[in-house]
């Protein structure tokens, strides 16, 4: 009797095991546990929509697979560099020209139909027909040029690896370099944790360079002396968050700054004194809802403004989005 009881009990237990396995296998336990250690980036990315003062009026595909650099000349022609080519578009997004080259350029600047491209550690000069005019020797084999600006007869190149801005004349001769720590003049040097380092010229030929590790935009004289700087470290809308921000800037004809901030993915306007004015576009302009929660790679590759104050943004999908004031 006892034995029978034991057998019966054991067999029932065994069948329970079989049942447990079977039910666990076939019941679709779509348990969507909350993640206690979640980093809620989508909350940080929320932007008060009343702050948005620009609207998207147009967008077009660059048709390039690895678009890297965007520039606009005085005739409002758009130049896009990347994937071993440069393409030209008019302001409504119609392709008007372009040429191929044999290196991948990461940034470019245009003046008088002369195109200056930063390709790794070299500066290349092309004319609009796609002929290479000159190729300057690398200043340093390790250099990585992330931004080029033109002013008068000089070319300014920002080198992220050496943390220097180099000023060249049009013959390719180095005029000066800035970036060395100079505590006497109150300059701490550029802190550049990753290859985001921009240099740009304002409406009054004032030179600005980003010090991304310090969240500063700094003004230098043409002699390379630091003049002033502005910038605030903060996750709130007025400041710059994370590391290496603002990672791209452009200066509007009226002297206002357009900044792109990776991570939170926001493009904002600051007035010439560095006071936050408003938002051009938030992450929703570049991301789907899902991406707001999950995506962590930067969405914007470069930005530029034309002489009417229209803002052009080149995104990571090789699309150019065009924003104007509301």
């Amino acid at each position: 009797m006892k034995q029978k009881l034991i057998i019966g009990f054991s067999v029932i237990l065994l069948l329970t095991v079989v049942y447990l396995i079977g039910s666990d296998l076939f019941t679709n336990s779509s348990k969507h546990d909350e993640n206690p250690t979640e980093y809620k980036i989508d909350k940080l990315r929320q932007i008060d929509s009343s702050l948005i003062c620009y609207k998207e009026i147009n967008h077009f595909n660059s048709g390039m697979s690895k678009a890297k650099g965007l520039a606009i000349d005085e005739n409002n022609t758009i130049y896009i560099a990347g994937n071993k080519q440069v393409l030209l578009f008019n302001s409504s997004g119609i392709k008007t020209g372009g040429f191929k080259m044999d290196t991948l350029a990461h940034c470019l600047a245009v003046d008088n139909d002369q195109i200056y491209l930063g390709a790794g550690n070299r500066i290349l000069q092309y004319n609009i027909a796609g002929e290479q005019i000159s190729s300057w020797p690398a200043f340093n084999p390790k250099s990585f040029i992330t931004s080029i600006a033109l002013n008068g007869n000089h070319i300014y190149a920002a080198d992220a690896i050496n943390r220097r801005v180099f000023k060249y004349n049009k013959n390719g001769n180095l005029v000066w370099e800035i970036g060395k720590k100079d505590t006497a003049k109150g300059f701490e040097g550029f802190v550049i944790p990753s290859p985001y380092f921009e240099v740009a010229f304002g409406a009054y030929n004032d030179m600005w360079a980003v010090n991304p590790g310090k969240h500063l935009v700094q003004n230098f004289s043409v002699e390379g002396e630091i003049q002033s700087s502005w910038g605030l470290t903060s996750f709130s809308i007025e400041g710059f968050s994370g590391c290496c921000n603002p990672s791209h800037i452009a200066i509007l004809p009226n002297g206002e700054f357009v900044t792109y901030e990776k991570g939170l993915e926001r493009i904002k306007i600051y007035d010439p004194t560095g006071k936050f004015r408003c938002v051009v576009a938030g992450p929703e302009s570049f991301m789907r809802k899902e991406d707001l929660i999950l995506k962590i790679a930067p969405c914007v590759v470069d930005l530029a403004v034309d002489n009417e104050g229209t803002i052009y943004v080149l995104d990571a999908n090789n699309m150019v989005k065009v924003f104007v004031k509301k």
Binding site: H59, F60, N61, G63, F89, G93, I94, K95
Partner: peptide, 12 residues
């Protein structure tokens, strides 16, 4: 895309 750019770039 079509609406955005009335006349089209080849790629588009």
């Amino acid at each position: 895309i079509t609406q955005a750019a009335d006349s089209l770039v080849l790629e588009i």
